[in-house]
Each structure stands twice: as structure tokens, then as C-alpha cells.
Amino acid sequence: MAASTAAEFKFSETCYLTRIPNFTSPNPKFCLRWFTPVTEVKLCGHVTLASAHTLFTTALNGGVDGCFLIELNFPTVPVTNFNSAEASLISKALNDAPLIDVKRTTTDGDIFVIPQ
């Protein structure tokens, strides 16, 4: 269902932000899941930021008057250094953007790019 919604909207990724009961604290708590048009994915940065923006700018923040925090619990994955010769290809693919660092995850081979 979620993947079909992503396909219908024709976005590369979409997310579902769901409020979850939090009986131990007055602070609202939410669950966030990410989907491509094909499958659920582990993480999507731009829709995570969009979700945080939505929480900050709408009544979803539980009615707290302008002062609340968002705590993000990102998955932790080990990383390794990226081949410096290949890093120049990454920079070129990003319109020759200067890069501070490039890392590759040891589990899935995902690439993390830190632009300057």
C-alpha cells in the first residue's frame, strides 16, 4: 500500500509519519517509515527533514507553544574510507562540488558524501 502511494505520487521516496502513544511522557512521539515506489527503505534524508518541518510548523507538535525538541534515532552502520580515486568521480557527478569526505557503508555499500 505505502509503495503504491509513492508510485501514485511519482516521488522517488515518500514517508509515513504516525503518532504513537506515549504514556510515560507528555511529549508527543512519532514513528517515521520511508518508501520508494517499489519497497520500504531504511532511511531517506530529505523526507525526514520534510517531516521535521511539518512537525515544527503544524499542530502535529501536540500544541506545545513554540518550544519542543525533535530527537532522531537513525540507524547506525559501520563505514569505511572511500577510494580517493573514485571520490573525484563523485565530485564530478555533483557538478564538481568540493567534498570534505566520502565514506562507504560496510554492510550495503551505500555512499555518504559530505560536501564542503
Rank of each mutant, 00 (worst) to 15 (best):
V77I: 10
N83P: 09
T24H: 09
V64S: 12
C15Y: 06
F56E: 03
K42H: 05
R104I: 14
L99P: 02
F30D: 02
A85F: 13
P37K: 01
A3L: 00
A50F: 04
F56D: 04
A85M: 12
G66D: 13
G45Y: 02
I90E: 09
N61H: 11
T14H: 03
K10P: 00
G45L: 05
V79H: 01
L69N: 13
G45R: 04
H53K: 13
N81K: 11
E86K: 15
I90Q: 09
S51W: 01
I70V: 15
P37A: 03
L72W: 08
C67L: 12
S25F: 06
R104Q: 14
A97R: 15
C15E: 07
N83E: 15
S12D: 14
F56V: 09
T18Q: 09
I90N: 07
T5W: 14
D101H: 15
L55T: 07
L60K: 04
N73Q: 13
S25P: 01
L32K: 07
I90V: 15
L89F: 09
I114G: 00
N27Q: 11
T36C: 05
C44T: 02
F11K: 06
T39R: 06
P26M: 07
P75N: 05
F23H: 10
D110P: 00
A85V: 11
T58Y: 04
T57Y: 03
V64Q: 13
A52L: 13
V102Q: 01
V102R: 01
G109P: 05
A6L: 05
Q116C: 15
E71P: 00
I20P: 02
L60E: 00
Y16R: 04
W34Q: 02
L72E: 04
V102G: 00
N83D: 15
N27D: 15
D96P: 02
V38H: 07
G62V: 02
P28Y: 05
T24F: 04
K103I: 07
S25L: 06
A85Y: 13
T76V: 13
F112D: 06
C15G: 14
R19I: 08
S88D: 08
E40W: 06
R104M: 13
F68C: 14
G45N: 07
F11I: 07
F74N: 11
V64T: 12
P26N: 09
N22I: 02
F74L: 13
L32E: 06
N27W: 09
N27Y: 12
T48H: 03
D110S: 11
N73S: 14
T39W: 00
